[in-house]
């Protein structure tokens, strides 16, 4: 039972929790304690040292917006942001409730009355912006993967195709996504015309920018992975005379999956970094815009709030990476050792 738990923890990348389970199971306490110290204790000490250096260092730096905030001030701002979010929520709830009551009353007086439902249009809070950014990065990332994986597989299977598109890939890969941004913005506003748009234009622009730069790692990794599949496995397929589709889905893709995932992981990481920059530059909703707005705002709280955003961006990036690693160890055949 606890072995299973340990397996799960290892699959999920939560290695630090393993000694805890072992301790609970009554394994050699000294060994587990030293394990716990290296896996949990040391990182904790590093964080504490960092916080100390930060709070001492920050107090020395005077900016036009006041002293650079230390950990305590940043924590205070984080709490503030949460409170603001709660307040907005309550306001929105109250708005919808009033609207509902009003409409119900209207219907009671006259069942045929025309009813209007309006959305609450409050200022998006910090947490709304997190949601927007996450949605955007996933949309862009999924779009990129849907293009990059099939194209990558095709390139891996056909050296000619790979040779043909390789120069394009080499040229577009190093382009900073921010250089794309103006073009994408113009193209989206020219092409995406709709009276009742399902998505906002800014959302599409950001998502497409993420797509454009997270295409490449996945595409290249997939192509290389498929091209370098163990020759014996290909020969197995040839001897059995698998048809084309089975060959691709039963042999090529599973064989390439570990490397495809490495590509996806890189792509998602790049996409997340790019998105924040794109949001700042294009004033598209999301965490980047939050940072930019606070910077423009220039109140004494701004630097603290920006730091909350920076730390949040880091934590989310880390969680996204963790998500991909966990997915990878769940889905591909290269199971972690000891499986």
């Amino acid at each position: 039972m606890s072995n299973k738990l340990i397996n799960y923890l290892e699959t999920a990348g939560l290695n630090w929790a393993v000694p805890v389970v072992r301790l609970c199971r009554g394994e050699d306490a000294r060994e587990q304690a030293s394990e716990l110290f290296t896996k949990v204790g040391l990182p904790l000490i590093a964080v504490l040292v960092f916080l100390l250096v930060w709070s001492v260092g920050a107090s020395q730096v005077k900016t036009s917006l006041g002293v650079l905030p230390g950990p305590a001030a940043v924590w205070h701002q984080a709490v503030n942001l949460y409170d603001e979010h709660q307040a907005q929520r309550e306001k929105a709830d109250a708005f919808y409730q009033r609207q509902e009551e009003r409409n119900a009353a209207k219907l009671e007086r006259n069942p045929d009355a025309e009813i209007k439902w309006r959305d609450y249009t409050g200022k998006p809070t910090f947490f709304d912006q997190i949601g927007t950014s996450l949605l955007t990065v996933f949309t862009g990332f999924v779009l990129a993967s849907l293009i990059a994986i099939p194209v990558g597989v095709a390139c891996g299977l056909s050296p000619k195709l790979y040779g043909a598109i390789s120069p394009l890939v080499q040229i577009f890969k190093p382009v900073s996504p921010l250089a794309w941004l103006p073009i994408v913005t113009m193209v989206v506003s020219a092409v995406y015309i709709s009276d009742d748009p399902l998505f906002q234009k800014s959302f599409i622009t950001s998502a497409v920018t993420v797509t454009l730069c997270s295409l490449w790692p996945t595409l290249i990794n997939t192509a290389v992975a498929v091209a370098s599949i163990d020759k014996d496995w290909i020969n197995v397929g040839r001897v059995i005379r698998l048809n084309w589709r089975t060959q691709v889905f039963k042999i090529a893709i599973p064989a390439a999956l570990p490397m495809i995932f490495t590509g996806l992981r890189l792509s998602l990481g790049v996409g997340w970094m790019v998105l924040i920059a794109a949001e700042m530059l294009a004033q598209n909703p999301g965490l980047g815009k939050f940072v930019w707005d606070e910077f423009q705002n220039g109140s004494s709280d701004s630097l603290g709030r920006i730091m909350v955003a920076v730390i949040t961006i880091g934590i989310i990036g880390f969680l996204l990476d963790w998500l991909m690693v966990t997915l990878q160890s769940l889905l591909s055949h290269q199971k972690p050792a000891g499986h």
């Binding site: 014996d232 496995w233 197995v236 001897v239 005379r241 999956l257 591909s332 055949h333």
Partner: peptide, 19 residues
């Protein structure tokens, strides 16, 4: 002139698909 199951091969290092 082409591979086929009537000439099945046992490969040196088994060539089992690990997934």
């Amino acid at each position: 002139n082409q591979p086929g199951p009537e000439r099945a091969v046992v490969f040196q290092n088994h060539a089992l698909l690990p997934w």
